[in-house]
Design a binder for these strands. Structure first.
Lengths: 257, 257
DNA sequence: CGGCTTTTTGATGTCCGTCAATCAGTGTGG
DNA sequence: CCACACTGATTGACGGACATCAAAAAGCCG
């Protein structure tokens, strides 16, 4: 793994803040776990886009997604929420969140209301944790954006699979090369900016190429290394020279701050 | 303006938090203004992707962008930073930010170092402000994503122009239908996931259609209403019926939380 | 002017969207 | 138990939006 990949891997927290941050994570988590266990069935809207003073959620089981419906009726999925993820920790400062949270599978979750969250973030350690959660979410959004603007269908799917794979693994939720992904191809399309039809075709091709197997709601990674290469944009299964990394790349003038 | 548009317009702050939030904004701003005035020339990297303990910036003059370079050498621009914007207020909690901030034009800015920011966010009002800044940035990232996945080249450009237009207007920096946008077509392409060639052609077409005029670094909006329609995805300059808003739209089961 | 970046233009190909039909899986009720 | 409806996945034909390649034109600056 080279330097570029490493810095792209995850937003590590600043050492100088890590102690308070850990404490804040612990406190916030405990606050969530002190609330009653709720659940939602597949397809249910957990937080509506126009909900006043939206709450924050801790997903304990299942998966959800964050979606935005554009004026012409099309849907765009901005993020996928996995077990142990906290959604909208910053909702406390907003009057409306502008997007809905929908259960992708049966979901168990805990909920802290807007007022509760506002009370909690008065504590500096929890505030720090909420800031870190926001930073991480934005970091992920940037990668998502980058994947969509720079990769073709195959690369986007590879990226999505690996992103979820790495997230689950980092949480210690899986140790194998397979996991459950409760998204329909339609939803995958809305997440990656593709149509169902093209998602179907591309998944099939990747299955034939023995890269990854996405069937129903189960993902099995067949060739992790190749998959990573595809997601990095320098794919071409048949090896081939991936054209030199643009020797004439327009790179801004370097200047350390 | 209907409800859908309104809730999409901007992430308004929760009334219950607005007082502290305003105070926090004021405090943070003052902290920035107490630092020396710095400047960067066009094209300079203000914060490097691998900078350890990255600082936060307040842009006082000019514009910058936040960019990510993918492994194959291609660049993707995640966000555009305008005057009065604060960049990376959450950098204090990260050890690396993973993206660079580059000056799009000559830029004047103030800088607070990682340690300084960490000290500041111990204050609950400033912490609140930082959380709000993060929420707003994520809200924008979601719209950006949505625009790129759901709109064609014409729609994306319309969206970009309007987004910047609205941001500048909300800050009170412009009152006319024209403003300066210090991005090359190449950078616009990297922001919208298009090639330079296609950006050039599309801009030209929009100029002919008298929608908007983007020349060199000046933007002049010719037909604001049409532009908004194009950005909403139900465009078609030649009017035409914009196909009914998908009567069969698969909408998740409604359930208020 | 000469060298640079940025924009424009044309020709050509392809990835992906659209339309439309079929098929498999799941659940429902008579 | 099977017809029926319904959602999700698959397949094929076709067209279009956008990428790629290549080169020229237009600004810009020393």
């Amino acid at each position: 793994m080279n330097r570029d990949e490493r810095i792209r891997l995850a937003p590590m927290c600043a050492p100088a803040a890590s102690e308070d941050l850990l404490a804040g994570a612990e406190l916030l988590c405990r606050a969530f776990l002190a609330t009653p266990d709720l659940s939602a069935k597949r397809g249910m809207v957990i937080i509506r886009a126009d909900a006043a003073d939206p709450p924050s959620l801790l997903i304990t089981h299942g998966a959800a997604y964050q979606s935005l419906t554009v004026p012409d009726g099309r849907r765009s999925i901005a993020d996928i929420v996995l077990p142990a993820d906290i959604v909208g920790a910053d909702h406390g400062v907003l009057s409306r969140c502008g997007h809905e949270i929908v259960a992708a599978s049966a979901v168990d979750y805990r909920l802290l209301t807007g007022p509760q969250m506002r009370e909690l973030i008065r504590g500096p350690r929890i505030a720090l944790r909420v800031i870190a959660l926001g930073a991480e979410a934005r970091w992920r959004a940037n990668n998502h954006l980058s994947a969509i603007t720079r990769l073709d269908a195959r690369g986007r799917i590879a990226w999505m699979v690996l992103d979820i794979f790495d997230r689950l693994r980092r949480k210690g939720l899986i140790s194998q090369l397979n996991f459950s992904l409760p998204l329909t191809q339609d939803q995958i399309g809305d997440y990656l900016g593709l149509t169902v039809v093209h998602v179907s075709r591309t998944l099939q091709r990747m299955r034939e190429e023995r890269l990854v197997l996405v069937d129903r709601h189960v993902v099995i990674i067949r060739d992790l290394d190749s998959l990573r290469r595809v997601a990095a944009g320098l794919a071409t299964l048949d090896a081939a020279v991936p054209k030199t990394p643009s020797p004439t790349a327009r790179r801004p003038i370097e200047q350390s701050i």
